[in-house]
Simulated scan of single mutants.
Amino acid sequence: MTLTNNTLVIGDNSEVILHFDLKLSDGSAADSTRVNNKPAKMVMGDGSLTKNFEDCLRGLAAGDKKSFLLEAVDAFGMPNPDNIYYVDRTKFSTDTPIQEGMIMGFSQPDGSELPGVIRSIAGHSVTVDFNHPLAGQNVTFDVEIIEVRTASAK
């Protein structure tokens, strides 16, 4: 992080509070902090954003507004066929009806949860896609930097 005219700019180890809008190439909104007027808070390098998204933020300061077009490979990557699984329908709870297009959480051996999109249901086979829902999509990343400060040491 460097100082420019006594203003902190985003660099390694910056804590950033920002509003962002993520739009698909057709202009539809994919995500936005403005919906609930609750800005996002992140620390550069903490894993909450990919390196490509973080690179867009580097050098920006409080008050800056910028728009970036990221190709799919630089945003959420391309869909990986190895992330598509066929699951027996009996593995799903009868309490929760499954439908194509719905996103469900799947428990992992380590206790974490991984989201998967139900792509199709055919007889006893359910196709679940564990790729990021925006994989393969070009996105526009609009940001408004609210505050930049040095991240506190842990």
Rank of each mutant, 00 (worst) to 15 (best):
143 V>K: 05
42 M>Q: 02
123 G>F: 01
1 M>E: 08
65 K>T: 11
18 L>C: 10
141 F>A: 00
31 D>S: 10
63 G>D: 09
71 E>A: 10
116 G>I: 06
106 F>A: 13
64 D>E: 15
153 A>H: 05
76 F>H: 08
79 P>T: 14
76 F>R: 03
67 S>K: 08
72 A>R: 12
41 K>I: 12
33 T>C: 04
30 A>H: 01
23 K>I: 14
146 I>T: 01
58 R>K: 13
48 S>A: 12
43 V>R: 10
29 A>F: 04
141 F>H: 01
91 K>P: 03
113 E>R: 15
96 T>R: 05
111 G>W: 10
95 D>H: 08
128 V>E: 00
151 A>G: 06
36 N>F: 15
101 G>D: 06
91 K>R: 15
53 F>M: 03
33 T>L: 11
18 L>A: 13
48 S>M: 09
104 M>P: 00
117 V>A: 08
137 Q>D: 09
16 V>T: 12
58 R>W: 06
22 L>H: 04
124 H>I: 05
131 N>K: 01
136 G>Q: 05
147 E>Y: 00
62 A>L: 03
34 R>A: 04
131 N>F: 01
56 C>Q: 14
80 N>L: 08
120 S>F: 13
18 L>P: 07
83 N>E: 09
6 N>P: 04
109 P>W: 06
124 H>N: 12
135 A>M: 09
40 A>D: 06
88 D>W: 10
149 R>M: 07
32 S>N: 05
26 D>N: 15
50 T>P: 02
75 A>R: 06
138 N>I: 02
79 P>G: 14
7 T>E: 09
111 G>C: 05
86 Y>M: 12
89 R>V: 14
85 Y>N: 09
114 L>W: 15
38 K>S: 05
116 G>S: 07
79 P>H: 12
103 I>F: 02
150 T>V: 10
131 N>I: 00
151 A>H: 08
145 I>T: 14
49 L>E: 00
